[in-house]
Simulated scan of single mutants.
Amino acid sequence: MTATAVRVDTAPAAAVKRRRRSLGSLAVVPLLVFTALAFGLPALAMLDGAFTVKDPSTGATSYSADNLTASLQGAYLTALLGSVKLSAVSAALGALLGLPLAQAVVTSRFPALREAVLTASGVLANFGGVPLAFAFVATLGNAGVLTRHLGLTDKGWDLYSFWGLVLVYLYFLIPLMVLTITPALDGLRSQWREAAQNNGATTVQYWRHVALPVLLPTLLGGFVLLFGSAFAAYATAAAMVGSSVPLVTLQIADALSGNVLVGQENVALALSLDMVLVAGLVMAVYLPLQRRSARWLA
């Protein structure tokens, strides 16, 4: 008795898969068109303005790097470095304070508490701008409620300073860190802790040698995300400190409106390009860290 080979034609199935893949690609086209219009055109306009120099005597325009050079000198450079310093300090504190809060939420025995904290974090992470500045001014400003009742002015407290702005930024950066790190904490397997305990490891040793190395890419990614959020913030600082704290976003606004010097609009575009480059560096660090963390916690 001989066996008969049965040939299965897989061509129709492959054709169906290709058709579905092509339809899926077409579904992305509207998003790509929207991205090109919403981000591509402004980016091209910013690049054109950043490299365009106008001769004040003749009014002729030419392409040059003078605007970029000016954006990295004097008060503009001070503002750029001030924004980097403020963002780095705020992001570091937000990451350090957000991690234990997220761990307390993850290990809580009360599901309602977890849901309440995560819901509140989602709201507070997006609460900023003028309302946030007004809330802090009314509470901790020179004539704020807590400032007067606790006599904070006599103790040297000043909300309209670098550290006052850091405190305000932490109001939305800590909730953002909680939202960022909570999924990673959920991904820590209980078997890892049990294995560490069975080998005689203490809680501190478990966190030092097991949990933190696994969480490190997510922690660094969270820091980078917080840095970018603080670096791009404008309305809160503008409403609260004005020009008392040098920030690049405030310098851009002043250059566009002509508050300091007239005819510096293209320098403002060069400053915007500097911010885009910094943001690009931030994303270049964040994306690899996110992929590395996903491999461990998947």
Rank of each mutant, 00 (worst) to 15 (best):
L152R: 03
A135Y: 00
Q73D: 14
Q73G: 08
L93W: 04
S83P: 11
Y160A: 14
V168C: 03
V166S: 07
F110D: 13
R109A: 07
G144I: 08
G98P: 05
T153R: 14
D55W: 11
L176I: 07
D158P: 01
H149R: 14
F172M: 06
S90W: 03
L176Y: 15
R109T: 00
F172S: 05
S83R: 04
K155G: 13
T147Y: 04
L140G: 07
A112W: 08
T69V: 15
N126R: 08
D55R: 10
T147G: 04
L97A: 08
V89E: 12
T153V: 07
W163A: 10
K54Q: 14
V84Y: 02
L118E: 01
D154R: 15
G74T: 04
W157G: 03
D158V: 13
K54S: 12
V123K: 09
A92T: 14
V137C: 00
G74P: 09
G94P: 02
L68G: 10
G59M: 12
S121N: 04
G94N: 02
P111E: 01
S108A: 09
L101A: 15
V130T: 08
G144S: 11
K54A: 12
L165E: 09
G151F: 03
D158W: 01
K54T: 15
Q103I: 07
D66S: 15
A95Y: 02
G151D: 12
A104Q: 08
L173D: 01
S71W: 09
P100L: 05
R109N: 05
A138L: 15
L113W: 10
G59Q: 10
T58N: 11
L72N: 09
I174H: 01
V53K: 12
S62D: 12
L96C: 12
A65F: 14
T139F: 03
L113F: 12
A95G: 12
L173V: 14
V130G: 03
Q103G: 11
T153I: 03
D158Y: 05
Y171L: 06
R109V: 01
L96H: 06
T147W: 04
Y63S: 14
T58Q: 11
S90D: 09
Y169E: 12
P175F: 04
L80R: 00
R148G: 07
V130F: 02
G82H: 07
F136Q: 07
S108C: 00
D55E: 11
L86S: 12
L132N: 00
S90V: 06
V145T: 14
A116M: 03
A95E: 10
T153L: 09
A125W: 03
A75I: 02
G98I: 03
A60P: 06
W163S: 11
T61H: 11
S108H: 05
L176C: 01
D55M: 09
A143H: 14
G122L: 02
S64M: 12
T139K: 05
H149A: 15
F127W: 10
P111W: 06
L93T: 02
T153S: 15
V105A: 15
A116V: 09
L159S: 02
K85P: 00
G129K: 05
S108E: 07
N126F: 02
L96N: 00
W163T: 09
G129Q: 04
S71F: 06
S161L: 09
E115F: 09
G141K: 01
F127T: 13
M177T: 04
T119Q: 03
P111M: 00
G98Q: 00
W163G: 07
L132Y: 04
D66G: 11
V166N: 11
L132D: 06
F162Q: 10
L118Q: 07
F162I: 08
G164K: 07
A75K: 15
